[in-house]
């Protein structure tokens, strides 16, 4: 299956990855090539096969409900692109 402009724009919105107008065609082509590879899966008979999310049949281990973390916001925000008064900053969000 091959992707068109609409699909590329849709994926671009979902992933918040910008695709410039003049690059849309190229991106669509490359993604379509990959989808062709995916199409090889169609032929396989997967009836009665359970999906496998993890390589091992392990179950979730649980953590005791104790506070183990300390306040490190200064250290962590030292590498933030923009922070003020202990808050991370982004351009104004209108709600």
């Amino acid at each position: 299956m091959s992707l068109g402009k609409t699909e590329v724009e849709y994926i671009s919105r979902l992933t918040q990855i910008e695709v410039q107008e003049d690059a849309v065609e190229g991106v669509a082509q490359k993604l379509s090539n990959i989808l062709e590879l995916f199409a090889q899966m169609e032929a396989a008979d997967t009836q009665d096969i359970l999906p496998m999310a993890h390589p091992l049949d392990a179950v979730q281990r649980l953590r005791a409900d104790v506070v183990t973390e300390i306040d490190q916001h200064e250290k962590l925000q030292a590498i933030a692109p923009a922070a003020a008064e202990a808050h991370y900053l982004v351009p104004q969000v209108i709600e």
Partner: peptide, 23 residues
């Protein structure tokens, strides 16, 4: 990222993601 998001997106999850998990 784009191809992965596409494989999970509405309408394609079963054909791509779920099928791949079965394989």
């Amino acid at each position: 990222i784009m191809v992965g998001a596409y494989a999970l997106s509405a309408g394609y999850y079963d054909a791509y993601y779920l099928k791949a998990q079965k394989l």
